[in-house]
Amino acid sequence: MTSRSENLQALITRPRYVLFDFDGPICRFFAGHAADRVAVELVDWLDERGMQHLLTDDERRATDPWDVLRAADRRHHGKDVVVELEERLTQEELLAASSASPTAHADLLVRRLVERGVRLAVTTNNSPDAARRYLVDHGLEACFGPHVYGRTHDLSLLKPHPDCLLRALAALDAEPADALMVGDSPSDLVAAQRAGVAFLGYVRNDRKEQQLRDAGAEHLVSSLEDVLRALDG
């Protein structure tokens, strides 16, 4: 019978390309710049512009800024106020980049993959500018080069839509069968499935683990140290 460690080793040593979600697998992005406070500020900003009708009462209590952004876009897709709201979130993310906390073992895993000749990309719903700022600050920009694919003004293309993965695969000239995505949410899993890419879930707590198991994820790790061991095994 194949062991869990053997499965993980096969999963991580096979791909020629690895696509990382950003917030979670690479860092805790809002570690020093609370996401729930950003969500409140986005709601307040809409209120100040008389746009209360864009959010339900439940959406107004959201603790995730992307929930606020998605809700506004569903009812006002492509309108100037939604574009401005997205730009406001980008500014908050640029601030968050300076206080983000690296995920344990992520930096070493990224460098070890590059040493093995694996090509990397970031595929995220975050602002690509904010992700790049973090990578530069932590000396990882050379590991990814230009391959940071994040949120665009077309919010309908956020994961679980596979758009950012498809852009990464095209730019890397990669076949989906040769790639692996490392993500931490059901939307990452669905995006990987739609792009035809294998998936490894990083789960830092029981809630994340249950969400991914419920979504059908087969391969999960609670520490990237397990991935390093499998890579070196």
Score class of each variant (00 low, 15 high):
residue 2 T to F: 15
residue 3 S to H: 09
residue 5 S to E: 14
residue 6 E to W: 13
residue 8 L to E: 08
residue 8 L to M: 12
residue 11 L to E: 06
residue 16 R to S: 11
residue 18 V to F: 14
residue 19 L to I: 13
residue 20 F to K: 05
residue 20 F to Y: 11
residue 23 D to Q: 06
residue 24 G to P: 14
residue 24 G to H: 12
residue 25 P to S: 13
residue 25 P to M: 15
residue 26 I to M: 15
residue 26 I to Q: 10
residue 26 I to R: 09
residue 32 G to Q: 02
residue 37 R to F: 15
residue 38 V to A: 10
residue 38 V to D: 08
residue 42 L to N: 06
residue 42 L to W: 14
residue 43 V to K: 14
residue 47 D to K: 14
residue 49 R to H: 15
residue 50 G to F: 14
residue 51 M to D: 02
residue 53 H to A: 15
residue 54 L to W: 12
residue 55 L to I: 08
residue 56 T to V: 15
residue 59 E to L: 13
residue 59 E to C: 06
residue 61 R to K: 15
residue 62 A to E: 13
residue 68 V to E: 05
residue 78 G to A: 07
residue 80 D to I: 12
residue 81 V to F: 14
residue 81 V to G: 01
residue 82 V to I: 11
residue 83 V to C: 02
residue 84 E to I: 09
residue 85 L to V: 10
residue 86 E to A: 14
residue 86 E to T: 11
residue 87 E to P: 00
residue 89 L to N: 00
residue 89 L to V: 05
residue 91 Q to Y: 08
residue 97 A to F: 01
residue 98 S to R: 10
residue 99 S to N: 07
residue 100 A to H: 07
residue 102 P to K: 08
residue 105 H to P: 00
residue 106 A to F: 06
residue 109 L to R: 06
residue 110 V to H: 05
residue 111 R to A: 08
residue 113 L to M: 06
residue 115 E to N: 03
residue 119 R to V: 04
residue 123 T to K: 03
residue 127 S to D: 00
residue 135 L to N: 00
residue 139 G to N: 02
residue 141 E to D: 00
residue 141 E to R: 02
residue 141 E to P: 00
residue 142 A to I: 02
residue 146 P to L: 04
residue 149 Y to H: 07
residue 149 Y to T: 01
residue 152 T to V: 00
residue 152 T to S: 09
residue 153 H to Y: 07
residue 153 H to W: 01
residue 154 D to Q: 03
residue 155 L to M: 04
residue 161 H to L: 03
residue 165 L to T: 04
residue 167 R to C: 05
residue 171 A to M: 09
residue 172 L to T: 05
residue 173 D to Q: 13
residue 175 E to N: 10
residue 177 A to K: 10
residue 178 D to G: 05
residue 183 G to Q: 05
residue 187 S to Y: 07
residue 187 S to G: 07
residue 188 D to I: 12
residue 189 L to P: 06
residue 192 A to V: 14
residue 192 A to E: 10
residue 198 A to L: 12
residue 205 N to W: 08
residue 209 E to W: 05
residue 211 Q to I: 09
residue 212 L to S: 00
residue 212 L to P: 02
residue 215 A to H: 09
residue 216 G to P: 05
residue 217 A to E: 01
residue 218 E to Q: 02
residue 219 H to P: 00
residue 220 L to S: 03
residue 220 L to V: 03
residue 222 S to C: 08
residue 226 D to L: 10
residue 227 V to Y: 08
residue 228 L to K: 01
residue 232 D to I: 04
residue 233 G to N: 03
